[in-house]
Each structure stands twice: as structure tokens, then as C-alpha cells.
Design a protein around this nucleic acid. Sequence first.
DNA 1: CCGTATCCATGCCGATACTG
DNA 2: CAGTATCGGCATGGATACGG
Lengths: 116, 116
Amino acid sequence: MDIEPELCRVEDALDILVGKWKPIILLHLLKNGTQRFSELKRHVPGITQKMLTKHLRELEEEDVVERVVYPQVPPKVEYSITEYGKSLEPILAAMHEWGTKHVLHKQQKIKQQPSS
Amino acid sequence: MDIEPELCRVEDALDILVGKWKPIILLHLLKNGTQRFSELKRHVPGITQKMLTKHLRELEEEDVVERVVYPQVPPKVEYSITEYGKSLEPILAAMHEWGTKHVLHKQQKIKQQPSS
DNA sequence: CCGTATCCATGCCGATACTG
DNA sequence: CAGTATCGGCATGGATACGG
């Protein structure tokens, strides 16, 4: 470990990952491979079309996701993780492991703070 | 790998880490141990008092940082990482490694997009 | 089916001034 | 020294309606 804060390159990855639905979108694409817009929308419950479009565009801009449009009626658009995007998986994995390991901590806290 | 998106626990860690100055603050506390408010302010160039206070309070709220006040004049307040907070280090390390490994990718992009 | 456009609420963050 | 108070800009994200 022992990361020099001055040379810290932590922000770059964070910038890509931050966004309300971005992690889940990426995990879906990582696990299930290529997905259509409507498939993603179904699998990410609660997300609106606007946000899904926006996040996908941003991830595309970062070269993390690839977008392929099939010029046909009705339209068909497929999204997939790029090789570059796959390099983010260790980070997601680290966060996921941390999250599963520390669910208890969170539950303890809720006990301490009795609801109104 | 192969994280089930449905059981995804990625957001918890992310919520703690997200904030303009939080990663650098944590990195400093991890590397240099206990630090006074003014020390942190010096070592995090550009941060305002307000943001430093705010972020530290939020990290404290998450049990990631501990705050110790010495009741004396002039005031002295020391901050340090908790054991729980240290568990975040692998995540920071993963992001840092990713960042250093992919600086080049970013530079390539800038070349492709000639400035105005 | 895969988007845009618009409106709007909230929150993050900076700048600045003030305090025990 | 270590904060708090106030103001204001800007980005994020939700709701909804519309379009090719």
C-alpha cells in the first residue's frame, strides 16, 4: 500500500464510476455481456430513460462502454463493455467485497439510532 | 469476480468515498496517521475550511475517521483513521493502481481532441 | 424502440466574513 | 486554531411529455 497522496491517481477511476446508476449498469454489462437499451432498462429497476441514456453516453465518452446502432425499424441499440472498461472490474470487486463484509456495521448503527 | 448485480453492495463504499476531497483526506490520514485540522488543511491544497470541516464530519459520521478535541486555548483537534476506516484501503489501492496504469489512455484522448 | 426536451428540486462546492 | 453562517453558481437527477 502506502500511496503517496501527492501522486494520487484515485480520482480518475472515481470520476468514471460516480453516478447514481453507473456501477449497476457496468456490473450488468460485465456479467451479462452485450445488452440492448431496453434490457438494461428492465434490469436496472427505477432508472428513467433519460438517466440511462445519459449515463451510457458518459460511459461511452470514457471509452468504457461501446454503443452499436443497428439502422432498422424498430431501432435496435446494443451496449457492451470495452476491454478498457473491463479493467475497472478489480475496483468494482474490491468495493463489492468491502460492502458485503461490512453490512453488519451498518445494521449495528441503525440499531443505535432508533427511528422517530 | 462475477458479481451478482442484484446483490450488489458496491454503493456503500462509494457513498463514503465520494466527495471532492475525501480520497485525498483519507490517503493523508492513512499515510501520516493522526493529523491536526490545520495540518490537513495545509496538506490538501485548495480546500476551504468549510469543505474540510464538512467532509471530516461526514467521514466521522461513517465511523471512518475519529475526531478528538483537546479542550484548551488555542483549540487543538486531531483526526485519525479508525480501524474500520483502514478497511477501505484496498479499494483506494485498487483505484490508485488503475489510475497510474491508465494515465496514458487519457493522454491519447487529449491528442485526438485538439483544443479550440 | 430508443431516444430528446423541458421543468424543477436538491445538493455540492466555492467565496467570503465572522467567532470563541 | 478550528470552526460556523450566509450567499450564490452549477451539476445531478427525477418527472413528464414529445418525436423518428
